[in-house]
Simulated assay, not measured.
Amino acid sequence: MTVPEWHGTHEISDPEEADPYLTTILRFPIKSLDADRLERTTLVTDGALAGDRRWAIVDRPPATPYDPSIADVTGTGDYMNGKKTDAVHRIRSEYHGTDEGGPAVTLRAQSEGPTAGRRFDLYDGTAGASEADVHVELNEWLSDHFGRPVSVRRDDVGQHDDRKRHGPTVISTATLREVAAWFDITTDSARRRFRANLEVGGVPPFWEDNLFTDEGSSVSFRIGDAVVDGVHPCQRCVVPGRDPDTGAETPDFRETFIRRRRETLPPWTACDRFDHPFRLMVNTHIPGESANQRISVGDPIEILERKSE
């Protein structure tokens, strides 16, 4: 293993004394919009959590009339996410429906009052219905918000940026609290900026860095009765540097983050996957043995072993 020269030696606390448990579950039914907070959820091997990122806003109008062989192919198809536009931060979303997400959402612009909002159906794959027809009014509302033609696309396996390591992302509450202090923001603001699926309590800051190791290996850990493989430290983008309500840039976010991450880097982080300090959170993979396993807030978490990928 080659450890970069900038790796710190500041030991925050002993991770062996941690008592990790699952404290928060966040699912994002519509990619890039607000989270749906859950008490329990189901793990899926071809995605992350059941219903996570099932819908996404894409930069193209829907095909008219609807034809499943050509629908949604008239534009670039890029995600309308925070990497593309800060306008996504100014949409508030609330979900209504089942344990797996949907089948309806209420949207409002951040500039509107908390009692404002408009409810839209989400296409759930019902036979005889078409995505283009179900989403007509939703697509119109979103197109007006973004000032360009967009449409909502459904994909049952989820629409994750990392197509290989698309299990639920993991971070600790202590890490979010630590990073929030760097920027004088609330812990909830940090939570909404980094957008992890699973949050771990009962541990020191950056404990989740124990859940990845050198290239070619992964770290198995148990949540309740389910086994998850920790794979990779997540590389960050421009999104965490913006206010999650307004999209306003936090001054010097990247520079400050890199400096403070170096200063507080614990010894257990050192591995060749952690090749630069603009990383936070852990990407995971759900092995076949954990397909359809349920996890719940309060479940204990236990690190099991390192294994070859």
Results as ranks from 00 to 15, higher is better:
residue 4 P to L: 12
residue 10 H to M: 12
residue 12 I to Y: 07
residue 13 S to I: 00
residue 14 D to Y: 07
residue 16 E to A: 12
residue 19 D to Y: 11
residue 20 P to W: 00
residue 25 I to P: 05
residue 27 R to N: 12
residue 29 P to G: 13
residue 29 P to I: 08
residue 30 I to F: 03
residue 32 S to V: 06
residue 37 R to A: 14
residue 39 E to G: 14
residue 40 R to V: 04
residue 44 V to C: 12
residue 46 D to L: 07
residue 46 D to N: 14
residue 54 R to G: 05
residue 57 I to T: 04
residue 60 R to A: 13
residue 62 P to V: 04
residue 69 S to G: 12
residue 70 I to G: 09
residue 70 I to D: 12
residue 71 A to E: 08
residue 74 T to R: 11
residue 75 G to Y: 02
residue 77 G to P: 02
residue 78 D to Q: 13
residue 79 Y to S: 06
residue 83 K to R: 12
residue 95 Y to K: 04
residue 96 H to L: 11
residue 107 L to R: 02
residue 107 L to P: 02
residue 109 A to Q: 06
residue 120 F to P: 01
residue 120 F to W: 07
residue 126 T to N: 10
residue 127 A to E: 13
residue 132 A to Q: 07
residue 135 H to E: 06
residue 136 V to T: 15
residue 136 V to Y: 13
residue 138 L to E: 00
residue 150 V to T: 02
residue 156 D to L: 15
residue 169 T to W: 05
residue 177 R to I: 05
residue 184 D to H: 11
residue 185 I to V: 13
residue 185 I to Y: 10
residue 187 T to R: 10
residue 193 R to C: 14
residue 193 R to E: 11
residue 197 N to Q: 10
residue 199 E to V: 11
residue 204 P to N: 04
residue 204 P to F: 00
residue 207 W to E: 02
residue 207 W to H: 01
residue 210 N to D: 02
residue 218 S to W: 01
residue 219 V to G: 05
residue 222 R to T: 11
residue 228 V to Q: 02
residue 236 R to V: 05
residue 257 F to S: 00
residue 258 I to C: 10
residue 259 R to Y: 08
residue 260 R to Y: 07
residue 261 R to V: 09
residue 264 T to R: 09
residue 268 W to K: 05
residue 269 T to C: 08
residue 270 A to M: 10
residue 280 L to M: 15
residue 281 M to K: 06
residue 283 N to V: 00
residue 285 H to L: 15
residue 291 A to W: 08
residue 292 N to G: 13
residue 293 Q to W: 01
residue 294 R to L: 10
residue 298 G to R: 12
residue 299 D to M: 00
residue 300 P to L: 08
residue 304 L to K: 11
residue 304 L to M: 15
residue 306 R to S: 15
residue 307 K to S: 14
residue 308 S to M: 11
residue 309 E to H: 08
